[in-house]
């Protein structure tokens, strides 16, 4: 094939279509949550508070925090990442609160999700969309 600009663009479009058609690496919200709960339902709108910036200046280092009263463990998920799992915090007998924070990587604009396992074995979840911006000239 003679690789003209028009052909090259068509090829590019075809390639893009292929990527879209494939099941993306990103999980759905439900799939991601179920992977943590082992198939159990997780309630939204409980006491679990997830804090993340609305806009992240750099996807490499995004501060996230949870406050999960009554939780025994909390898992962070980034459902738009190639691998949605981020970290799981298990609170031990000497945990002073059910709060924790860390810094995470986000590949793109996406929902960050927290799933809390409660003392009674139930689950709660919360999510927050984080827009990841692309730096100026990339330098």
């Amino acid at each position: 094939m003679n690789l003209t600009r028009r052909n090259a663009m068509a090829l590019g479009a075809a390639a893009a279509a292929t990527i879209v058609a494939l099941p993306a690496g990103a999980a759905t919200f439900e799939e991601a949550v179920m992977s943590v709960t082992g198939g159990k339902e997780a309630a939204e709108g409980g006491d679990l508070v997830l804090t993340a910036p609305e806009i992240a200046e750099n996807g490499n280092t995004v501060p996230v925090a949870i406050d999960a009263p009554g939780a025994v463990a909390v898992t962070f998920l980034a459902i738009g990442n190639p691998n949605p799992a981020v970290a799981t915090f298990k609170f031990g007998p000497l945990a002073g609160s059910r709060e924790a924070s860390t810094r995470i990587r986000l590949a793109t604009t996406q929902d960050v999700v927290a799933v809390a396992e409660m003392e009674d074995g139930s689950f709660q979840t919360a999510k927050q969309t984080v827009k990841v911006t692309i730096g100026g000239c990339g330098g």
Binding site: T51, A52, P53, E54, I55, P63, A65, D67, E99, S101
Partner: peptide, 14 residues
């Protein structure tokens, strides 16, 4: 926790 919430709250714009 409050400081964190405060800094996030202000981040609505780029």
């Amino acid at each position: 926790a409050m400081a964190f919430a405060a800094l996030i709250a202000g981040a609505g714009v780029a």
